[in-house]
Simulated assay, not measured.
Amino acid sequence: MSVELESLAVYFDSDSSSWIVDKPWEDLLPSEWSQVFEFQEQDGSRSASKKHAYILQPVSGKAKYTKIQLTEAKKTGQALQNTAVDLDDVTLSLSKDGYRDMLKLADNFSTFNQRLRYAHLRPSSPLKSDPRAWWKYAYKVVTQEMKKASGRLSWEQLLRNARLRKTYVSLYASLLKSDMSRLVVDDHEEIKRLDRELDMEVILQWR
């Protein structure tokens, strides 16, 4: 079996506008996909390599896969399966703008994960209507971050966490046993109250 690869490429265009298509993506014809992904000059000729900021420059090649019988492989000592790949020159590169945008993207993911970690502590009311709740939220987040950074807990905190764990696990287990069709418990007021006091990692471990 053999396959042929034609102009495989990966590009990362900075400051580009979103694609606009006139119909659902799944209804596009192969020729229409090419029109979306490739730029065209005014005369209709394609010159995508001049326009895109490629990470992997367009590369073509051929691959051949062969498989022989087990008995033949034992007799000849050849591999049972063999794959041969012949590619053109492979060029990898990253533009300055692309590097900048990737760092920005990674920073956005980091910020999102940080917010998600403490999402269960965020007040449901707007900031202007309940600033006190938001100050409490900020205090809890900073306190937990400092606690993680120090890596030390007092005996009082250890005892408190042990009591919380005993209360949480027993209550959560009893609620699950009371209704075997439930996969999670997210509508119990006491569980909600305890969740607001705990880190997301701790909640997942105890559940």
Rank of each mutant, 00 (worst) to 15 (best):
L159W: 03
L159Q: 07
E189V: 09
K140M: 15
R207M: 09
E145A: 11
E145I: 06
R100M: 11
Y54H: 03
L56I: 08
A84K: 13
M102T: 03
Q69E: 12
Y137P: 01
E189M: 09
K192I: 13
T66W: 04
I203Q: 00
R207Q: 13
A84C: 14
R100I: 07
Q144S: 10
R122K: 09
V142L: 13
T71R: 10
S17D: 11
W155L: 05
L171S: 10
V3E: 06
L183G: 04
V36I: 08
S7L: 02
S14H: 06
H52A: 06
K64D: 06
Y139D: 13
P58R: 01
W33D: 07
Q205P: 03
E145Q: 10
V141K: 00
M102F: 06
K136T: 08
R163E: 08
V10L: 14
S18I: 10
L105T: 11
L127T: 02
E201M: 14
K51S: 06
S125I: 08
F12E: 02
Y99T: 12
V3I: 14
D186G: 12
Q81P: 07
E38Y: 11
M180V: 15
R132E: 15
K147W: 05
Y11W: 03
A162Y: 05
D27T: 14
V3R: 09
E197S: 04
V202A: 13
I191Y: 02
K128Y: 11
S31R: 10
S170M: 08
R117W: 01
E6F: 14
N108P: 01
K74Y: 03
A48V: 04
A48C: 09
Y172W: 10
N113T: 09
L175Q: 02
E145W: 08
A149H: 02
E201Y: 14
D195M: 06
K128C: 11
A63S: 08
K140I: 05
Y172E: 04
E72G: 03
Y99R: 10
Y11G: 00
L56S: 01
D186W: 10
R152N: 07
K64H: 11
A84L: 15
S16M: 04
Y65P: 01
Q69V: 10
L159D: 06
M102I: 14
H52D: 01
K23V: 02
A9S: 14
V85E: 01
L92M: 06
K104R: 14
V85H: 01
P126H: 06
S2P: 04
H120G: 04
M200H: 01
D179L: 08
P30F: 05
Q40Y: 07
S181D: 13
I68E: 00
L92E: 02
S18T: 08
Y139P: 07
I203H: 00
I55N: 00
G98Y: 00
S34R: 12
W206F: 14
